[in-house]
Design a protein around this nucleic acid. Sequence first.
DNA 1: GACTTGACTAGAC
DNA 2: AGTCTAGCCAAGT
Length: 100
Amino acid sequence: MSFGAAVHRLVRRIPRGQVATYGQIAALLRRPRAARAVGAAIRACPAGVPWHRVVNARGSISRRRRAAGMLTQRILLEQEGLRFRRGHIPLERFQWRAVK
DNA sequence: GACTTGACTAGAC
DNA sequence: AGTCTAGCCAAGT
């Protein structure tokens, strides 16, 4: 199974109202230094994958080449009840605690 | 199969 | 507190 497919499978498990970080996803896949590659994988994720629940290590939305998607991500997260404080989501409260 | 490209990160200044 | 840097790694070309 490709790395990308593994990322998508894992992202689908993030519950509504919670978020995970790129580095966290990488670590869960036993590739602790592949955070960047996680971003690349999420860039092309299939429909149905809650890609918006993945944020950077500070709990904020990462910059893209084209900023359009950033607002979309924020809106989707707020629709799930998450609130931004000072430009970021407080991870201590809303980060997904994966079992594995 | 050799570059290039980032939706990354931790650390240094 | 804001920027910069150096590693990193899978995908795309």
